[in-house]
Simulated assay, not measured.
Amino acid sequence: MLLTATLLALSAAPMQERRIQQTGGAAAREKEEKQQQQQQQPVRAKPIGSPGAWVTSADYPPESRAAGESGQVTVKIEIDATGKVSGCTVATSSGFPRLDQKTCELVTLRGKYEPALSPKGKAIPSTSMMRFGWSATDGT
């Protein structure tokens, strides 16, 4: 059985633009611009460990395996300000409700994140999109 996990996109608060004062040389302006960008950019939530370990071949629902069900499930993961998965919804179904449900169940149970940070460095809730693949074939 083959299971895959793909990180699709993470989101956090939108970036803000600020003007750089035209003082000093070009190098000073570039340095100031870089510092301001670093201070203003939110930090996205980051999975702790490998998301592929959240959903493993040992988790394959026996009924789905017996029926030869397989497919890709894309889920929207809600992450609270502590990094805990607080919700999971199917964004794109595998075509098999058991696999979709099992994916969200496992992501909610096992998923852990470093929380997203606001531009001011405060931990904030965020969302992440992730794709997991279920394959009933294991080469035997």
Rank of each mutant, 00 (worst) to 15 (best):
A5Q: 08
L7P: 00
L8W: 01
L8N: 12
A9W: 02
A13C: 01
A13N: 01
M15D: 11
E17D: 15
R19N: 04
R19D: 04
Q22F: 10
Q22N: 15
T23Y: 07
A26M: 07
A28H: 13
R29C: 07
E30R: 15
K31H: 14
K31R: 11
E33W: 11
Q36N: 08
Q36V: 13
Q38N: 12
Q39R: 13
Q41M: 07
Q41I: 01
V43W: 06
A45T: 05
P47I: 09
P47M: 06
G49F: 00
P51N: 09
P51Q: 08
P51W: 04
G52Y: 09
G52S: 14
G52I: 13
G52A: 15
A53P: 00
A53K: 10
W54C: 07
W54P: 05
T56R: 12
P61T: 11
E63V: 12
A67K: 08
A67C: 05
A67W: 06
G68P: 00
E69I: 02
E69L: 10
E69N: 08
V73T: 01
T74L: 08
K76Y: 02
E78S: 13
E78D: 13
E78C: 06
T82D: 09
K84G: 11
V85L: 11
G87F: 04
G87R: 00
C88D: 03
T92S: 14
S93C: 02
S93Y: 03
S94T: 10
S94P: 01
